[in-house]
Computed example of a mutant assay.
Amino acid sequence: MIAKIIKSILIFVCSYIALKTIHYLLKKLFKITTFDERYENTLCSVLSSITYYIIFVLSLVLVLREFEIIDATKFGTLVTGASIVGLIAGVAAQSILKDIFNGFFILFEKQLQVGDFVVINEKFRGTVEEIGLRSLGLRDWDLRRITVSNGSITSIRNYSKNKMRVVVHVRVSYEEDPMKVMDSLEEVCDIMNEKFKDYTISPSSGDKKKSFKVYGVTDIEDNPVGAKYTITGVVQSYKYFSAMRETKLQILLVFKKNDVHIAYPTHINILHHEKNIEEL
């Protein structure tokens, strides 16, 4: 019995060493390939996941064989052992298969890759760190690790697909001169086109140098605060968030310089002294 336990421990140790060796070789292999870096990381993550499950199953079979639960040389014993394993696995088979199939669709359709910034199910937000057969690993803004099963993924918003449109809205008081506001926003667009000239992408029509443009007044109805103006611009996806932040900053700076006031809720209270009311 002690000998079987020792052999089982050795099997797991050897399996662990084999797993680490394969992962190391995979990383070395993908370093000499000519694939895109994110695609390399994605393939490496998936192959590592597949390797883990294969080695785990083989190690489990070898350990069960040591304890004579499964004997691969005898068909009857193998069928009995397989039936027991199948009975246990059958309970979770449906969800496992759903995770695996969904994982393959995500991989081969290139819905996301390692390194992409995504929003999953309109709930989980972060950078993809790992894509496995059964689950997806994200790292959020607080550096917390989020694991989402592939089968539960119903929607993916990917912020890392070549290009994205920056859309910034700002509300300005109705008392402001609309043409003055438009001129100020045009100045913001000129600043953004100059600062991000190496990262802007030409829209379907128009000049790349004028990627950032004033879209115009987009709302004046049913809003007592002020009119809404909109700026748009197309940039490379990895510059989306920095362009969004910079646009908002430039709006504040230019408006302050040009004495344009951003709208905000206000309340006017009119108070009358009783004596004044009687006189009136």
Rank of each mutant, 00 (worst) to 15 (best):
K98M: 03
E221V: 06
D140A: 00
L19M: 07
L26D: 00
D140I: 02
V148P: 04
K213A: 15
E109L: 14
F117T: 08
M244K: 14
D207M: 11
F35N: 02
T147E: 08
F104M: 08
R157S: 03
T230C: 08
L78T: 14
T218L: 12
S205G: 12
D190V: 14
L10P: 03
I50H: 05
T34N: 10
S95V: 04
L60R: 04
K257R: 11
F104W: 02
L97P: 00
P224M: 08
L271T: 13
N158K: 04
I5L: 05
K180W: 12
L252N: 15
Y264Q: 00
R125K: 14
M244H: 13
F212H: 09
A263F: 02
K161V: 11
S149N: 09
L47A: 00
E122Y: 05
T21H: 03
I146V: 14
L25C: 09
V13P: 01
N193D: 10
K98N: 07
F75P: 05
R139L: 14
I50E: 03
C14L: 08
G90C: 05
I106K: 06
R245Q: 15
L271W: 09
V128W: 13
R245D: 15
K228M: 09
K27Y: 05
I106F: 10
F30L: 04
P178V: 10
Y264W: 05
Q94T: 01
L64F: 08
L10M: 07
V214N: 02
F12C: 02
F196W: 11
I5K: 00
P203E: 09
E109W: 15
M179P: 13
N102Y: 11
I5E: 01
N41C: 10
C189D: 04
N276G: 14
E186W: 04
D198P: 09
V13K: 14
V235F: 12
M244Y: 12
I5N: 05
L62D: 00
V148W: 04
S160N: 04
D99Q: 00
N150M: 11
V181K: 10
V119D: 03
Y238G: 13
D99G: 13
S173G: 15
E130W: 15
D183A: 13
S45Q: 01
H272A: 02
T218W: 03
F30A: 05
L253T: 14
F196R: 01
P178G: 09
N269C: 09
L26I: 06
I84N: 01
L60K: 01
V260P: 02
D219I: 04
K256E: 10
F124W: 14
Y16C: 08
L25P: 02
F35T: 00
L138C: 07
L47V: 01
K213E: 12
G115E: 04
M244R: 15
T230S: 13
N158T: 06
S242P: 07
N269S: 07
L143H: 12
K123I: 13
I70K: 00
H272S: 04
G86W: 04
S184Q: 07
S45G: 02
L107N: 08
V168I: 14
V235Y: 02
S205A: 15
I54L: 04
L87Y: 00
C14M: 12
N121E: 01
S204N: 14
K98W: 10
F108L: 14
R157W: 11
V79I: 03
Q250C: 11
V168N: 09
N121Q: 05
Y229C: 10
T34R: 03
C189H: 10
Y39D: 09
F212K: 05
